[in-house]
Design a protein around this nucleic acid. Structure first.
Lengths: 355, 355
DNA sequence: GTGAAAGCGCTAACAA
DNA sequence: TTGTTAGCGCTTTCAC
């Protein structure tokens, strides 16, 4: 069941069979038909290992993710996959398995043992050693979601996204706006949370607004974290959860104490916004009457609860990244990629503040 | 940068270098050390293609999923990945991309061109052709999540899981229990929804309880679908969404019309349960005072809203599947796998019915 | 404990 | 348009 069998059966040479199978020009149509037929009859399955050995191309690209079970990563992988399939490439998944997983493992040279022609890194920040090892493989590389020093990247402009969200709130007349952000231990590019927070702070400052430190809450980029942060921010008790004010400001008393209650909360992710919504409900606050909430992402759940958000499209980002890297494999010189689009989606959780 | 270089530098033969690198016995320790050192210095990266060609083993397994961005699949892939890495295998992801994606693609013999040594199929039901093509590759195969004719599978006993959920409700004193299930167009094993529904129906029948057809609602296994089904079931209007009663019973009037309102709702997934919770809240129903809700899965979001559920562990199922298939690759004969565990997690959304 | 030689299944010049 | 001849980088008898 190799190319050889087909050759013997058809009485052709391996070379011709190979050419026919790959649809190369300069092979008689009759020959092609015959080869294809015989291949089918024999149940021929090409060996990518052999082809890879001969050509030096594996027709596969590696996708390195911090974890898979996150909205952004899952969507992005899907996008990468689409383009890879279209191009006839396979997707080899390298899952770092979160903070617990032994991350190095995936970066060991031996792990990328020439199995892939290129690498797509999701939201990773690499340290020196990692960079070095990856460079060593000389593969085209690109990162999705968050800037990475020295590497091409595709993703939204996080500062601008935050500004858009704040702008919406400001436009509605809000002045008392709190922020829920924090680090994502699961491995999100560490720069992203900072850039979103900075975007928020800058936009507020530009509007001449002061943000008390206690209004910068830590939602750990998760639903539960958002709920805890919301509880803290909106003046309730912490209700069993373990979030803490990121600023380390007032201890325990609840952020509302010194600064009053915000009329709006900007969350650096929809998941956290969902949590804040939950916290607000538990405290008996009406949204958007008593409180406006806006998130970032465009998570499906947000639509169901009518969450206003600045939506991005990780699937599209995945496709762009895949195409870029594939082009590079084909010899194209790495061009500059524009920031991915993000659009304000106004739904039911934002409205002008009361009074 | 091949094994040859190391051979020349060390003055050894390719054979010995190969043996040393693989840690085979009958190689002098000094030799091993020397080879390793030189390999390191040279930045040697083994070629899986070459090794694969020579041995016929790719040290990679394929994972076929209907879609990636679902809780169950993402978790299961993570589990498979863990075991694969432990064994030094790579994970090649074949994403069918939902009902829209051209599913056949991934099943074309040529797609699995000897790149993997085994296959893990997630929640797939195969038709004759697909089975045939996959069989043709003679790879060890296993499916996770839902039975598949002729293939080994790992997963919970869906009928039993449903019975557990119903048993909990019954034990609390509920008699008027509705069901939210439906088909998952995204590609879940079609048998699963039926088995859960049957488990529900059987348990109800065993308790001598009647379930009006209008109490079998279609939640399409999604959050939004669950919300729509809940709205219908709990007597409100459909509120913009497009779910329909699966039974085709009363048209439009709302299921409550003929049968009154259920005191409890059993949902075939946590996502749908979350949706039902949302619907209940919108209708002003208090949970669990006015309505009990129970789901299946153990979704993280459920914990945050205190959803009672029958939890399963897809990550563990992934690990079991990976180990099983790896063992088979190593020549073990496919043994029978016990059903995966599922445990009732009683939280705040279930309580005895009022009055 | 180590080496020599023959492939694994394919592709890629170069000829014909 | 087709065939010949070398490998791609590794593993694996079989000798030594």
């Amino acid at each position: 069941m190799g190319i050889q069998e087909i050759a013997t059966v058809t009485g052709l040479s391996k070379a011709t069979v190979s050419r026919a199978l790959r649809g190369l020009p300069s092979v008689a149509e009759t020959t092609v038909d015959q080869v294809r037929r015989v291949a089918d009859e024999l149940g021929y399955v090409p060996s990518s290992a052999a082809a890879g050995l001969a050509t030096g191309r594996q027709r596969a690209v590696g996708v390195v993710v911090p974890v898979i079970d996150r909205w952004f990563y899952a969507k992005a992988i899907g996008g990468v996959d689409v383009e890879l399939r279209r191009a006839g490439y396979d997707l080899v998944l390298y899952n770092l398995g979160g903070p617990g997983g032994d991350r190095d493992r995936a970066f060991r040279r031996s792990m990328l043992r020439h199995r892939v022609d290129a690498l797509v890194l999701l939201s990773l920040v690499l340290d020196e050693t990692e960079r070095a090892e990856l460079e060593l493989t000389r593969h085209p590389m690109i990162v999705i979601g968050g800037p990475a020093p020295g590497l091409r990247n595709v993703g939204v402009d996080d500062v601008a996204v935050a500004a858009t969200a704040v702008g919406h709130l400001l436009g509605l007349g809000h002045r008392r706006i709190a922020y829920v952000g924090g680090q994502d231990e699961a491995g999100m590019n560490v720069a992203v949370p900072y850039r979103r927070r900075d975007g928020f702070l800058d936009a507020m400052a530009a509007a001449g607004l002061h943000v008390p430190p206690s209004w910068l809450a830590d939602g750990r980029f998760s639903f539960a974290g958002g709920a805890a942060a919301g509880a803290l921010l909106l003046g309730g008790s912490v209700s069993g959860c373990t979030a803490a004010s990121a600023s380390g400001a007032g201890s325990g008393a609840g952020a509302g104490a010194g600064a009053g209650r915000p009329t709006a909360v900007f969350c650096a992710s929809d998941e956290m916004a969902l949590g804040v919504l939950l916290a607000a409900r538990r405290l008996g606050l009406r949204v958007p009457a008593d409180l406006s909430v806006i998130g970032i992402d465009g998570h499906e759940y947000g639509a169901a609860v009518s969450l206003t958000t600045v939506a991005q499209d990780p699937e599209a980002q995945g496709r762009v990244a895949a195409r870029a890297v594939l082009a590079e494999v084909d010899g194209a010189r790495p061009g500059v990629l524009p920031p991915a689009p993000a659009t304000l989606v106004v739904r039911g959780t934002t409205a002008p503040p009361r009074g």
